[in-house]
């Protein structure tokens, strides 16, 4: 008798499952059956009339998000990111930094204040973590150690990024990895200044932000930015031939040839030729315009017009 009852029960459970499936199927086929209208522009969803500039911009950015597809250039079959308005080819996709705590709010192209050099700063931000320049060790702390971390996973790279060492395939910053500062524990393990814990905290804050009042939001922001220095590193902290560069290039696997370029011949030569170019003291965060030392007033005025 029992197997018979079990069989009946199974049959009923199956029937219920099938009912659920049938309802889902009805839901699933609805857009398929009635899709003609949207496919053929009967009920096109147009931007709301009277949408604000900001709304339109958001819609535009959202729609372009989809169109950043890779394009197939045929013969050489180059898959690349489509960057609107970029005439010259990129020839690749550029990994976004998925792990940076800072980029969650500041974005992956964060620099915009220092007009003459912001593109250069963004170029550096592409392979150097924000913390490197914006958080310096306090006098009572040991100097930071540096490691490469994977932009997608956030894990420390065990070997140096490929495009860094191989001359032929030199990637010029697109290493899929970034330099990040951290501390060495006594057992030899390495911890990034912004690690798992900090990331979890920021994610949690962003999730609950809207529930907090502005005072509490400010408090939380203070906590998140507690390590950030008022004055970031300057170009010649690393691009220097006279002293030890702030970032230990050799430890990070930079080939000697590249270190030479960074610290002397190419870059420093350029920086010396155009002093304003690499001594952006007039754009120190936290300083007002009045107390900015202006090495060359004319150039500065020129610069603020530009970029």
């Amino acid at each position: 008798m029992l197997p018979n009852q079990l069989k009946k029960l199974m049959g009923k459970l199956y029937a219920i499952a099938l009912i659920v499936f049938a309802v889902w199927y009805g839901y699933f086929i609805y857009p398929i059956i009635f899709s003609h209208a949207e496919h053929h522009g009967l009920d096109v969803v147009t931007a709301k009339a009277g949408a604000s500039v900001e709304e339109k911009m958001l819609q535009k950015v959202m729609s372009e998000q989809k169109s950043t597809a890779t394009t197939d250039l045929g013969y050489t079959v180059v898959k690349e990111q489509y960057v609107k308005g970029h005439f010259h080819h990129v020839g690749m996709t550029m990994e976004k930094d998925e792990t940076s705590v800072c980029a969650r709010c500041h974005g992956s192209v964060p620099h915009s204040k220092a007009k003459p050099i912001r593109a250069f700063l963004n170029m550096h931000a592409f392979f150097i973590g924000c913390e490197t320049c914006h958080i310096k060790a306090k006098p009572d702390q040991a100097p930071w150690s540096f490691r490469w971390y994977d932009k997608i996973t956030g894990k420390i790279l065990t070997s140096n990024p490929k495009g860094l060492v191989e001359t032929e395939k030199e990637m010029h910053g697109n290493y899929g990895a970034k330099i990040g500062p951290g501390t060495l524990a006594s057992d030899g393990s390495f911890n990034f200044l912004n690690g798992e814990r900090e990331r979890a905290f920021v994610i949690d804050y962003l999730k609950n932000k809207d529930a907090l009042n502005s005072t509490d939001q400010s408090k939380m922001k203070k906590v998140i930015h507690r390590l950030v220095d008022e004055k970031p590193l300057l170009c010649d902290n690393c691009h220097t031939s006279s002293q030890k560069p702030y970032i230990p290039f050799d430890e990070l696997g930079y080939p000697q040839r590249r270190i030479q370029q960074i610290t002397s011949t190419e870059v420093v030569g350029m920086l010396q030729k155009y002093r304003d170019f690499y001594f952006p003291r007039f754009v120190m965060p936290g300083q007002t315009r009045a107390d900015q030392p202006a090495p060359n007033a004319e150039q500065q005025a020129d610069a603020s017009k530009a970029r």
Binding site: M94, H111, S112, A119, N122, M123, H124, H172, G173, M270
Partner: peptide
């Protein structure tokens, strides 16, 4: 010298 860098952007 500058424009070879991938991240040169704003």
């Amino acid at each position: 010298l500058c424009h070879k860098h991938r991240g040169l952007s704003r």
